[in-house]
Design a binder for these strands. Structure first.
Lengths: 218, 218
DNA sequence: GTCTATATCCCGATAGAC
DNA sequence: GTCTATCGGGATATAGAC
């Protein structure tokens, strides 16, 4: 017989790969047209499966959306790892901005879908925002507070700092269309990418420089 | 006969008022559920008119959406007026941030709908972004360049500065749900509003302080 | 200008053969 | 696991009376 008890890895790997293809298609379309603006037919077509087959893998549109969002949030959290208490603050902030800007460049659809979900009241994600994002943010706020108390950076509201970092870096993904309309450029242009990273970095390092330090950031 | 050639102002004023009520309802619902996620029935109900009557005023959903967006963009442009060449840069930046933050507080739905439209590729607004927003931004970039050349502020990329200002101020409207999930506060809380304005202002004034100036911003 | 009734279409989901 | 066929619901938009 073809199916034994041991390890159907071959078939399972195929299934996992198919799931990934479907999730990628769904992310792309959801982020561009919204969840309600996207039909399962379109997702199926872009993922190169039949609509019924799509529904076999994800039992309904809501389930598909939830699965996509779970993936998105996971990747969205990664950059925060850069803010470690033992690191040099300036280096850590630089690394954080670089990582987040790279995320905006490489995963604009993920950034947009996250923005969409939050803007609409985070119907699916509210729970996780409170249960996983909130504790993470509190931990990072503590790191920032520690840096302030050690005199390594100027006094600042840690939460406000985090919000501003998010805002400035994600803007390049979420408002890419507007930036293109105004400047005909986006982060995929290496020169514009470098210029943008440098700008955001400078903005925050100037603000965080402790009282006694000299002006230039490099 | 009841209809004469002179001035049916009474009836016209009623009609204008009704249009405004419909537009307000549409803005609220579109911004919360997306355009595709909003039914004309729901708009009609919230505006307290019948669905057929709604369609009488706006011939189709697309037309309604376009009308709402036109209103939104108009209000969205106003704060930029604060950046006048003859003004003191620090005062002008302060005023700009204050105006934009007040807009985020008082018109969060407008901010979100604008964000939604842009994120989805600005299908309706691209033309206007290029034809009206772009020239306005160029004019304001020239003002900033003028300030730099006069030695009134530190050197900075004018467009990047504008993008960062937009990003940080609009974040409070577009990501209000996230901020509430993390901090249980929003801009309608006066203390949080003041704290947020102060934070954003400080962030930019530190960056823009010319080389010779002292550190404190007030 | 405002209403009721309805035409028309499309989408999500199911049933069931293979 | 994958397919075809189809049901059932719901939303936009129109027709036409008042």
């Amino acid at each position: 017989m073809t199916e034994a008890a041991e390890a159907p890895t071959r078939r399972e790997r195929m299934a996992q790969r198919k799931r990934a293809v479907i999730l990628a298609a769904a992310l792309d379309l959801f982020s561009r047209y919204g969840v309600e603006g996207t039909t399962l037919e379109a997702v199926a077509q872009q993922a190169d499966v039949s609509k019924s087959n799509l529904i076999y893998y994800f039992p309904g549109k809501e389930a598909l959306y939830a699965a996509v969002l779970a993936d998105v949030l996971e990747g969205w959290l990664v950059p925060l790892d850069e803010l470690r208490p033992e690191a040099d603050p300036a280096t850590a902030i630089r690394a954080y901005i670089a990582t987040k800007m790279a995320f905006s460049r490489d995963n604009p659809a993920a950034s947009r879908l996250f923005c969409l979900e939050v803007m609409q009241g985070a119907p699916v994600l509210t729970g996780r925002l409170r249960s996983v994002l909130r504790p993470t943010v509190e931990a990072k706020a503590a790191v920032i507070r520690h840096w302030i108390e050690a005199g390594l950076i100027a006094p600042i509201d840690p939460h406000q700092l985090i919000f501003s970092l998010w805002a400035t870096t994600q803007h390049f993904a979420d408002f890419a269309t507007q930036i293109r309309a105004l400047r005909d450029r986006d982060l995929r242009d290496p020169a514009f990418y470098e210029e943008s990273v440098a700008h955001v970095t400078e903005l925050f390092l100037q603000r965080l420089r402790p009282a006694g330090a000299s002006r230039s950031s490099r």
